[in-house]
Amino acid sequence: MNTPSVELRGVRKSFRGTTALAGVDLDLYPGVVALLGPNGAGKTTLLRVLATVLGPDAGAVRILGRDPQDGTQRTEIRRHLGYLPQELTYPRGFSAYGFVDYIAVLKEWGDSAGRREQVRRALEQVGLGDVAAKRIRALSGGQRRRLGLAQALLGSPELLILDEPTTGLDPEQRVSLRHVLAELGRTATVVVATHQTEDVAALCERVAILDEGAVCFDGTVRDLVTVAENRVWIADEPDPRARTSWRTAEGRYRNLGDAAPAGAQIVPASIEDAYLLLRRTSGSDAEVAA
């Protein structure tokens, strides 16, 4: 495989005694990668490290072949970076266009005519081309989220870091987002943190699962689903041998366990099943190498 765009080795980060990242080893390549994990698993912290907002307490980080600890290299990384934080509050008195334009100026487009083109393009990619002149406060929640995405997309960055980009988007908007990201994923590295497994299936080729500050899975979506193969079955009652069960829409019970018992009605596994199985296991039997 070609060289990774992002390399993390033994990255640790703590805040006031709580460990957010407990030794993360991860390589990221061009394409769309999902970062899956429960709340508090350290996804946001990891993304902030990737976005050069935070530096690790320990461990090595290389982003786009450069060292973010060094000031000059960090600035250079930022020239090729786009970041959408999990929560974004907007300043008052800006229009959608004005907001994206502001970031464009800071991204060194200065006075160039190319700046208008870039801003328009970013806005159109997220479907805000027609409301560009509106005040941000006049936009809906979904439109505001897309606005945040637009500034991240400026200049088609080599590394795009998106923290829960699909919150507040309706299904139609999710679909168009998938197209945009798939297009970008051809040349750029797109990291999408999410806890929605449907997004993973639709958006991403690779998945990394973060649990309690460490990576417990890193591989393709297909490999992930394989983890749960033959470990999901349907029964009329919750099976005590299963690790977890829940009621389905048809009124039966979906069971997840270490192995389906003999004679059980095995069903195809989903990403969610695999995710849940991996989460409940700690130790080497849960890790599947890329």
Partner: peptide, 14 residues
């Protein structure tokens, strides 16, 4: 005080 602080931080502008 600045809602755009994090976004600005991530730009090449120092």
């Amino acid at each position: 005080v600045d809602p755009m602080y994090e976004l600005v931080q991530v730009t090449p502008y120092l």
